[in-house]
Amino acid sequence: MTDSNANMPDAKGYFGEYGGQIIPPQLIDIMNDINDAYDKVSQTAGFQDELQELNADYVGRPSPVYFAKRLSEKVGGARIFLKREDLNHTGAHKINHCIGEALLAKYMGKTKVIAETGAGQHGVALATACALVGIDCEIHMGEVDIAKEHPNVTKMKILGCKLVPVSRGTRTLKDAVDSAFEAYLEDPVNYIYAIGSVVGPHPFPKIVRDFQSIVGKEAREQFLAKENKLPDVLIACVGGGSNAIGLFTAFLDDAEVKMIGVEPAGKGLDTPDHAATLTLGTKGALHGFECYNIQDKEGNPLPVYSIASGLDYPGVGPQHCYLKDIKRVNYEAVDDKACLDAFIKLSRLEGIIPALESAHAVAHAMKIAKTMSKEETILVNLSGRGDKDADFVADYLSL
């Protein structure tokens, strides 16, 4: 990494002025125990060997880098490549950190893993990983998302996890996080909270980033082998920010590589129906850490919206906040209409049905590709497949 990103987070979990442990004093020791266990266990040969074997033989890594030839020809300009995280077991990048978190829980002797999920990809991946290592799993999910993402709900039940519907507030991701964390606090000694993104109190943003960094490490090597150069632009969608930081981390030292995180503009940035936290948010505390978030004048998080359930979170990972401030990553916003257009175009031109979350990144790639030359390249992190969204989109568009 660049000097400004090296050794981050610091000992207190901060990326610049973002992150930390904004939690009750009695929880700080527990979080520090998790951090110490992670730092110790994750460096052992046994853990690394088991993780590497599972990534190769269970998850199906490395995921390929694919040139989207027909999409590129249709759009014009730069060539668009996809890092195919949609081809992982369970259909998204979420399995990368869920395998790591489940292994960590096993090595620490925990009896239950508790987590939240929005679109259900994290829930499915964690239920899968817990079934694999033989540990109980409890997933909290908003009722709105349960109705919208029924295929993932069914998978979680089949995998044997306890699914807890959340009926409070907006009944979406933010409320699921609140509910899951409360359940975790009932027995933090025997339970472990496996957060689904690079958010939450330290050490979770670090742990999830580290497990997701395999995406960028693979992509960098693959792209150099394929093109004999690095991509000109990296693009990934950003809700909490795990798939984006997973791609970006390996390229932070490469000043010539431009990076763009794409947030949901929802029904428009001039409406309250968006989740563009880096674009329109202000600094504050949320879910145990400091970050940009969508909040009222008293600092309370406001309801947010995205057509993609995995992106409707009022905060964002602290490292993304830092990367925005130092201008290493640019953050843009894509609305529902452009997202759906990209969803259909990628499906019909390449035979790849993307997750609605990932379609935000594809939409921005389509937008900027036409302003670039044919010699230039864009690499999009296709973070998940759209099985979970197919019925919703078909109904929404009356297909």
Score class of each variant (00 low, 15 high):
Met108Ser: 06
Lys106Glu: 02
Leu103Met: 15
Asp86Thr: 08
Cys98Gly: 13
Leu87Ile: 12
Val75Gly: 00
Leu71Lys: 00
Lys74Ala: 10
Glu101Lys: 02
Pro64Ala: 11
Thr90His: 05
Ala105Lys: 05
Pro62Trp: 12
Val75Lys: 01
Lys83Glu: 07
Val65Thr: 13
Lys94Gly: 01
Asp86Phe: 09
Arg84Leu: 14
Glu73Pro: 01
Leu87Val: 14
Ala102Tyr: 00
Ser63Cys: 12
Cys98Asn: 14
Glu73Thr: 06
Leu103Thr: 07
Glu101Phe: 08
Glu101Gln: 15
Leu103Tyr: 04
Arg61Asn: 14
Glu101Gly: 03
Cys98Trp: 07
Gly91Ser: 14
Arg84Glu: 00
Phe81Thr: 04
Lys94Leu: 09
Ile80Gln: 03
Ala92His: 00
Leu71Trp: 06
Glu73Tyr: 09
Ser63Pro: 08
Tyr66Ser: 12
Arg70Ser: 15
Leu104Gly: 07
Glu85Gly: 05
Cys98Phe: 14
Ala102Thr: 07
Leu82Trp: 01
Cys98Gln: 14
His89Asp: 05
Ile80Ala: 01
Gly76His: 05
Leu104Thr: 08
Val75Thr: 08
Arg70His: 15
His93Asp: 02
Tyr107Ile: 02
Lys106Asp: 05
Lys74Asp: 03
His93Glu: 03
Asn88Ala: 13
Leu82Thr: 03
Ile99Ala: 10
Tyr107Phe: 15
Pro62Arg: 15
Ala102Arg: 01
Leu103Cys: 08
Arg70Glu: 15
Gly100His: 00
Phe67Tyr: 15
Arg61Pro: 09
Ala68Asn: 02
Lys74Cys: 01
Arg79Lys: 14
Ile80Arg: 02
Glu73Ile: 03
Ile80Cys: 01
Gly91Ile: 13
Pro64Met: 08
Glu101Met: 11
Ala68Pro: 06
Ser72His: 03
Arg61Phe: 12
Arg84Val: 07
Thr90Glu: 10
Phe81Pro: 02
Tyr107Asn: 12
Gly100Arg: 05
Asp86Leu: 11
Ala78Ile: 06
Leu87Ala: 11
Ala105Asn: 11
Cys98Met: 15
Gly77Ile: 03
Leu82Phe: 14
Leu104Phe: 09
Gly91Leu: 13
Met108Pro: 03
Glu85Ala: 06
His93Thr: 01
Phe67Asn: 12
Ala102Glu: 10
Ala102Asn: 04
Leu87Gln: 12
Arg84Met: 15
Phe81Gln: 04
Tyr66Asn: 03
Ile80Gly: 00
Ile80Pro: 00
Gly100Asn: 08
His93Val: 03
Gly77Arg: 06
Lys106Pro: 02
Arg84Lys: 11
Pro62Glu: 14
Ala102Cys: 12
Ala102Val: 05
Lys74Thr: 05
Thr90Phe: 00
Gly76Gln: 10
Ala102Trp: 05
Cys98Leu: 14
Lys69Phe: 00
Ala68Tyr: 07
Ala102Pro: 06
Gly76Asn: 06
Leu104Lys: 06
Lys74His: 11
Ile99Arg: 14
Arg61His: 12
Val75Asn: 04
Ile80Asp: 00
Pro62Ser: 15
Gly91Gln: 05
Ile95Asn: 02
Ile99Gln: 10
Lys74Gln: 09
Leu103Val: 10
Val75Tyr: 06
Tyr66Gly: 04
Asn96Phe: 04
